[in-house]
Amino acid sequence: MNADEIISSGMLEAYAMGQLSGADARVVEQACADDPRVRAELDQIEEAFELQAMAAAVAPPPAIKAQVLQAVSAEKKGPATAPPVIPITRDTKAPRSWAWLAAAATIAFVVSAAVNVMVLSELKNVRVELARLENDRSVLAEELQVQRASLERSQNMLAVVSDPRMQVVALNGTAADPAAKARVYWDKERKAVHIDVLQLAQAPAGKQYQLWAIVDGQPVDAGVFDMGDGTAPIQAMKGIGNAQAFAVTLEPEGGSVNPTLEAMVLIGQV
């Protein structure tokens, strides 16, 4: 930076007001030493501030002067100490109060960081908890589904059993399975047939039980049924409008067109 640049830069004004940092202040001081024009410009700027201050002068209370002189003369009598150097530019060191602010800011930051860690950890816990609850929820939803199906079956069963139009036909075991016991619920008018198996041996693999209606001495297919878990206690069968008796035979899987009479396990008269 040459002299003209320094003069027009605003640095001299800033220097006079103590605004410049150490490095910039040295640039100005060097330029003043090197070039009398810079020195003269700075002097005029300083003079402007000085004139302004002189014109705006306020007489301090007289007691201050006495206090200054008293303090000074006390210092003179005291032990001689090497005076610290006060630079013409403002001390760039932050005043103590800023140090407190910095300390407060540091503490605030540390507290904030700690809170963040806590919040993050808490957030992680909450996420784990949320996943657990979501799992619980889906388990409960499945459970509800099962219960609903079960309820529906029970309601259907109840509807069948409690229907006053239903005729109940008791089927008893034959010599093939004397302990067997079942009931047929039959609504003759609506041709609705249901079977409620109370006691019956498990069908061997590859075999299914088949219900027959005996109409005028002839067996009429009323459908096959399964037993055990997952099957309704009372199962709807094929519609039958007329029958004198019902019988159950053990047939190959899928049922037969004609019953295997030797394999009849249940029979009951209407």
């Binding site: 003043c32 000085e50 006060i86």
Partner: peptide
């Protein structure tokens, strides 16, 4: 008051090459 005590203590560090006396004192 503080200013004039500092002027007393530091007068020898004033450098006329760096500026006017008033500038040094008022700063």
């Amino acid at each position: 008051q503080d200013t004039f005590v500092k002027i007393w203590r530091n007068a020898r560090s004033y450098d006329s090459g760096k500026g006017r006396p008033f500038t040094w004192m008022v700063n």
